[in-house]
Design a protein around this nucleic acid. Sequence first.
DNA 1: ATGAAAGCGCTAACAC
DNA 2: GTGTTAGCGCTTTCAT
Lengths: 348, 348
Amino acid sequence: MKQRATITDVARRAGVSVASASRALNGLSASAATVERVRTAAGDLGYIPDATARALKMGRTLQLSFAVDDIGNPVYVEMMKAVQSVVTVPGYRLMISSTGDADDTIDLLRSLSKGYADGMILSPLRVTDRLVEEVRAAPVPVVVIGRLPEGSGVDTVMTDSARGVGIAVDHLVETGRRRIGFVNGPLDTTPGRARQHGFEATAERLGDRHGPAVAAADFTVAAGYDAARTLLAGHGAPGGTGPGPHALDAVVAANDLLAIGVMHAAHDAGVRVPDDLAVVGMDDTELARVFQPSLTSVSLGSGERGTRAAELLLARLADPQREATTVVVPPALHVRHSTRPPHGRDTP
Amino acid sequence: MKQRATITDVARRAGVSVASASRALNGLSASAATVERVRTAAGDLGYIPDATARALKMGRTLQLSFAVDDIGNPVYVEMMKAVQSVVTVPGYRLMISSTGDADDTIDLLRSLSKGYADGMILSPLRVTDRLVEEVRAAPVPVVVIGRLPEGSGVDTVMTDSARGVGIAVDHLVETGRRRIGFVNGPLDTTPGRARQHGFEATAERLGDRHGPAVAAADFTVAAGYDAARTLLAGHGAPGGTGPGPHALDAVVAANDLLAIGVMHAAHDAGVRVPDDLAVVGMDDTELARVFQPSLTSVSLGSGERGTRAAELLLARLADPQREATTVVVPPALHVRHSTRPPHGRDTP
DNA sequence: ATGAAAGCGCTAACAC
DNA sequence: GTGTTAGCGCTTTCAT
């Protein structure tokens, strides 16, 4: 807790003006001798330039903000790590906000006017018109991870989760499943809606393989468990009585957390995974790799979305005039034990 | 991306001086009329005070920093959430740093001199003398979550993980286990050492129940898997041949991630959990609740440690002279399926 | 109660 | 190449 030295102290000790000290420190025009003396003076004093003063003068804070609804979700943790590692390179610090609800997000966007950050990456669960408007009106660049209305003129990174659901469904058909249900998250969220469309889009090519869909209260294990119980109870899960003609033998879940909930419900109902019921999750979190049985999951490229969003933000910061860009990160299936064909072998 | 209004604009529009505007806005002495006019002027202009300028003037940024070695670990995520929710109340923003190694941490501590944060919460995996010294020398208050040398004069929140290991061991004995092994993390970490002591301290009261200990390469699932294979192979795991006199029938893991690795290794070796092998983890993360079989785990109060650390920091910020405080959060056992007695029932 | 002015620490014109 | 000076936006004496 010692007192900090200012550039004035350094200048005095080096016997030069503060301007020369500043120039010497920042590698601008200065004689070798001056640079040398300022350097040593700064070293002796343990001088470290004050970020706040510099920010005030330069009009940039070297801080970026990352805002998500629930930082407890592993997906966002992964994004955050990716963002962190990208923005650290050019010297930005990262601030985290877990907003929890849409109004908080808007407040947060507004508070950017305080000028504490040079830009923001936002990954909202619910995209409203008002939100889009606020993003547009933000005093600093904002990159959105998520699906925005067409032509919003906002830098965006998105994935195609609808197609992700399609990929999951196709995988289940290919591995011989006959009736496929869907456990979604809340339908009033952007990802929930997209995934719902994705599931519905498989209806015509699946015919009677297309099973019922149910929406969980939120994207959590507990909600997935509850939703799956409904689904399994209402639509004749196999198990004790053996698979009937309309029994569900596969479930796609809208994320890994829900999928784990589904597996719990199956377990409690005496339904074996993958033998009686195949389960596929989405997001490909570490949980999917680690769970037993390991969970087949559709990666939505969380880490990559974070990386790309960070790059987009950095690019816009470098050139505010550049055209708004949309990056799409494709989904990718990772097959694991939870969807092995019935009676198949079970190796890592 | 509109232009921000400054207090000068507000003052002009209200027809008062900037000083009066400032006072009116901050609720200091000002006539009702002035307050009214300044308020409306500010409202019209959408004025939001600039955080940087205020920080420079006031000498405080309203920002706090939270630094951990690996933000990917669920324990730290939980701490972060807790810290976030405490510091948000008095208006602080939170910056996150994932340091990854000890030198990074020291750099980070040094860079606090830049004055971008008013304080820091630090949870290091390895506590060296140099680190303690740097914490002491830091230009702003630092609260450490972890075990520091006696009398460091630093605000600290710690848990008693050694006792946590003892609690786990006792639970295993009480539920009838005969030989208990230990899968630790790296011994050159502070938690690793503490937990090792905790396990060794059970030796005399356990007698021949006390089994071998092994240290994993780090606190991850993969490392736990590898370590457990060694342990199970070298010390006669039960299973195919039935429990011999020296066969391990229980393992304590130094955290939940390692414990999951142990369960994987057991599964691959044909060892059933909990029937053949009881497993207890530590940290009581969501993973423990969600895994199948659910994992008995010793809570080390991650969330509470975060909360207490944040409170300590806030208290020190409010009164820099207060005496250094150490808060101890006690461990608590959460019994789940992974340690049900052999042939016991298996209900939630 | 209000205004003028100083100044937080730094950088960038602008002269020399 | 270097020193002098202004000023980023704000709060806070100090007069009045």
